[in-house]
Amino acid sequence: MNWLQSIGAYGLRFCEGMGRASFFLYSTLFALPSLLGQRFPVVRQFFNVGVLSIQIIAVSGLTVGMVLGLQGYYTLVDFGAEESLGQAVALSLVREMGPVLTALLFAGRAGSALTAEIGLMKVTEQLPAMEIMAVDPFKKVIAPRFFAGIISMPLLAAIFSAIGVIGGYFVAVGMLGIDSGAFWSQMQSKVDFYDDVWNGVIKSMVFGFVATWIAVYEGYDATPTNEGVSAATTRTVVHTAFAVLGLDFILTALMFGDV
């Protein structure tokens, strides 16, 4: 019966964790209006979370777009449909690759940094020091990072997709000899703003919300030791990956299930 006990214990721990994370989210959302009075901390977090992630997002977007161009070409050419490559690359990027890969890269680059930073603030007693100075850490530390993460993710996903399309264009037109006009016109006629681009934006907003929530929560909930922060940082990346991939399936089924 030990395995049954283990499953029960895991279930209880999971429910307890979700409860704590929900209370944490409630406090964070409640603290968001305080951001109106603190412009500089928000801008700084935009820089840390968003601007500093652009490099990895741009490089990844470019390579993913180029690979999509190559792989798509070798499939489409068998059907004489290689001129649809622009459409294939763009749809893959704006519907799936852009939001999902950006969220996974975001978890590795910005999410882990957020967790480690907040966790170390706990280790070095900066968060208790704020509390004892009657300054709410949710308003001062958590809310600016949370807000910056939510806003940054859709922008980073847009950059990822845009640069991915350019990468696909280089491969399709530059290497594989597809007509430039066909590449763009196929993309323009087949990619719908609301069904494809806007749904991709909604996905990236949901992923941004979840990924940033996990990152700041894990940092705040970390055991205040070196090992505790290390474990919390790992949990951020793993839990974000699970959450993003699971939510991606649900959102895709809801958005494109009837197509």
Binding site: E125, Q126, P128, A129, I132
Partner: peptide, 9 residues
């Protein structure tokens, strides 16, 4: 309060 580590930001 003065914390053991200083707890400076």
């Amino acid at each position: 309060m003065m914390f053991q580590s200083g707890a400076l930001f």
